[in-house]
C-alpha cells in the first residue's frame, strides 16, 4: 500500500468507526466488532462489515451510514462489503463497548463465547443495581442479539446481550 493509500485507509477507518448501531445507539460498529476491515485498492475504499446474526435487519442501514460517514469525511463512492467469515462473536466487543452497554441499561455478554456460555447457567449482573440475583424471563428479547432478564433485587427488567 502506498503512503497515500495508507493515509486514506486510516481516515476511512476513523470515519467508519463513528457509525453507531441503529438498534443500540450507544455502541459504534467498532465497539461491537461489526467493523472488520478497511482497505484501499486503486484509490477506492472498501469497508468490510459482518452481521451479528444472519437475519440482523440493521446491516443495510449500517452499510448506508458507513457510506454517508465516509462521504462526509471527503471519501465518496466507498464500497461496503458484507463478510460472514470468520463468524462474529461477542468476544469481539471491546471492553469500552461493554462498559457503554452497562451504562445504557443492557447487561453485556458475560464471559467468553462458547456453546457452553450460550447454554450454560449464565451469571448475569443487573446493569441497574449490580446485583447478581437475576433471572431469565425470555430467551428472546427486543432484537435477535438480546434476551430478556429481570433483577430480583431492584425488580427492574433488563436486556441481556447474549454471549455467542
Amino acid at each position: 500500500m502506498t503512503p497515500a493509500d495508507a493515509d486514506l485507509a486510516r481516515r476511512a477507518h476513523a470515519a467508519a468507526a463513528t457509525v453507531c448501531d441503529p438498534e443500540i445507539p450507544v455502541l459504534t460498529i467498532a465497539d461491537l466488532g461489526v467493523l472488520r476491515d478497511v482497505t484501499v485498492a486503486d484509490g477506492r475504499v472498501e469497508v468490510a462489515i459482518t452481521p451479528t446474526y444472519s437475519g440482523c435487519p440493521a446491516m443495510d442501514v449500517i452499510g448506508i451510514e458507513v457510506q454517508t460517514a465516509l462521504a462526509q469525511a471527503g471519501i465518496p463512492d466507498a464500497r461496503v462489503r458484507l463478510v460472514l467469515s470468520p463468524a462474529w462473536t461477542t468476544d469481539w466487543m471491546t471492553d469500552a463497548g461493554k462498559a457503554k452497554l452497562t451504562a445504557y441499561g443492557i447487561a453485556p455478554p458475560a464471559g467468553k463465547a462458547s456453546r457452553r456460555a450460550l447454554f450454560g447457567e449464565e451469571q448475569v449482573a443487573c446493569p441497574h443495581c449490580g446485583s447478581a440475583a437475576t433471572e431469565k424471563v425470555s430467551e428472546f428479547g427486543s432484537t435477535a442479539c438480546k434476551a430478556l432478564w429481570r433483577c430480583r433485587a431492584c425488580r427492574e427488567p433488563f436486556d441481556y446481550f447474549k454471549c455467542i
Binding site: 452481521p51 437475519g55 425470555s138 435477535a144
Partner: peptide
C-alpha cells in the same frame, strides 16, 4: 408476548439464513 417475540426472532434468523 414472550413467545410471540421468540417465534418472530426464530423466523428472522431463518429468513436471514435464507438470504445468505
Amino acid at each position: 408476548l414472550e413467545e410471540d417475540i421468540a417465534l418472530a426472532n426464530i423466523a428472522l434468523d431463518c429468513v436471514g439464513q435464507a438470504r445468505s
